[in-house]
C-alpha cells in the first residue's frame, strides 16, 4: 500500500501548502484561488477518508460557493492593507498555535476511537426508511440538528436582508458565458434531481443537490440573467423561507401523528424524508443564491 500512503502524504502536504498560501499571499485573487484549491484537495482527501457525501458537499459548498463569496468580497474590499504584527505577538501566536496543534495531534492520534454509533446506525437503518446511513442520520436519527441547521441558513439570510450589502451585477462576460450557461443549467438541474433521488441509498441528498442547483442559479446570474426583478427576488425569498417552514410543520405534524417530534410513522419514513428533502433542496438552492447575490438597493461594479 506504499503508493497509497505516498498519495495520502502528498495530498496532506498539498492541503497544508495551499492553505498556507491562501493565508499568506498578499494578492487577493491569488489567495482566493489557493483557498478554492485547498477546498478541492480537502474534498479529495475526504473521499480517501471514506466520506463521499461530505466530499461532494465540500467541493460544491466549501470550495465552490465559499470561494465565489470570497471572490465577490475580494473585489469589493480592495487590496490588502494589513499591518505586520508586532514580533512578540507573532511569536506568542506561533507558540500558542504550535502547542495547541501538537496537543491536538497527540490527542487525536492516541484517542481510542471506539465510536458507539456504527452498530446503532446499522441496527436502526432498517427502520429509517433510507439505506444511505448518512442520509438516515441527517434526516431521521438526528433530524433535529438538520432542522436547526436550516434555521441557521434562514437566520443568515435574514441578517443579509437586514444588512443589504451591495447587490451583485455581473460583468459582461461576453458571448462565451451565455452558451455555457445554456448547457450548464439543464445539466445541473438533472444532476441535482439525480443527487436528491439517489441520496436515499447512495451518496448525495438535499444539501448536495441544493448546492448544485445554487451553482446553476449563479451561472445564470453571472450569465447576465437579472435577478433584481422584484418578483423574482420575492419568489426566491419565499422559497428560501419555505424550507424551514415545511420542515418545522412536518416535525409538528409527525408529533401529532406518532407522538414523537420528528418521529415518522411506521413504514412511511421514506415518503416523509423524500418530501422534506425535496422542499429543502429548493429552499437551500434559493438561500445560497440569495446569500450570494445579496439584497442591496445599490449595486457594486
Amino acid at each position: 500500500m506504499s503508493p497509497v500512503v505516498l498519495f495520502d502524504a502528498a495530498l496532506a502536504l498539498g492541503v497544508l501548502g495551499c492553505a498556507a498560501l491562501a493565508l499568506t499571499l498578499r494578492d487577493r485573487t491569488g489567495t482566493v484561488a489557493a483557498f478554492m484549491l485547498t477546498g478541492l484537495l480537502v474534498a479529495l482527501s475526504w473521499l480517501r477518508l471514506g466520506a463521499p457525501d461530505v466530499a461532494l458537499a465540500e467541493a460544491a459548498i466549501g470550495a465552490g460557493l465559499t470561494g465565489a463569496l470570497f471572490l465577490r468580497g475580494a473585489r469589493r474590499l480592495g487590496p490588502l492593507r494589513a499591518r505586520p504584527p508586532a514580533p512578540a505577538q507573532a511569536a506568542a501566536a506561533a507558540l500558542g498555535a504550535a502547542v495547541l496543534s501538537a496537543a491536538l495531534l497527540w490527542a487525536f492520534a492516541t484517542a481510542p476511537a471506539e465510536s458507539l454509533y456504527p452498530p446503532r446506525v446499522a441496527a436502526a437503518l432498517e427502520d429509517s426508511g433510507v439505506s444511505n446511513p448518512v442520509t438516515a442520520v441527517l434526516l431521521n436519527f438526528r433530524a433535529w440538528d438538520t432542522l436547526l441547521e436550516i434555521a441557521v441558513l434562514v437566520v443568515a439570510l435574514l441578517l443579509v436582508m437586514t444588512l443589504s450589502p451591495p447587490r451583485v451585477i455581473p460583468d459582461k462576460l461576453g458571448a462565451l458565458v451565455q452558451p455555457f450557461a445554456r448547457i450548464v443549467v439543464p445539466v445541473a438541474v438533472l444532476v441535482a434531481g439525480h443527487l436528491l433521488w439517489q441520496g436515499a441509498e447512495a451518496p448525495g441528498g438535499a444539501f448536495q443537490a441544493g448546492a448544485v442547483l445554487a451553482g446553476a442559479g449563479l451561472a445564470l446570474v453571472l450569465g447576465g440573467v437579472r435577478v433584481d426583478r422584484r418578483v423574482l427576488r420575492r419568489a426566491l425569498t419565499a422559497l428560501a423561507l419555505a424550507g424551514l417552514a415545511v420542515f418545522t410543520l412536518a416535525a409538528l405534524a409527525s408529533q401529532a401523528v406518532t407522538g414523537a417530534l420528528l418521529g415518522y410513522p411506521d413504514g412511511q419514513a421514506k415518503a416523509w424524508i423524500i418530501a422534506i428533502e425535496g422542499a429543502l433542496t429548493l429552499s437551500i438552492a434559493a438561500t445560497l443564491c440569495l446569500l450570494f447575490t445579496g439584497y442591496g438597493r445599490r449595486s457594486a461594479r
Binding site: P85, Q89, A92, A93, G96, A97, L100, A103
Partner: peptide, 20 residues
C-alpha cells in the same frame, strides 16, 4: 481584532493545559 484572537488562543491553550 487579532489581539482578541490571540487572547482566545492563549486562554484555550492554558485551559487545556490546566485541565490536562
Amino acid at each position: 481584532p487579532e489581539r482578541g484572537a490571540l487572547a482566545i488562543l492563549g486562554v484555550a491553550a492554558a485551559l487545556a493545559l490546566v485541565m490536562a
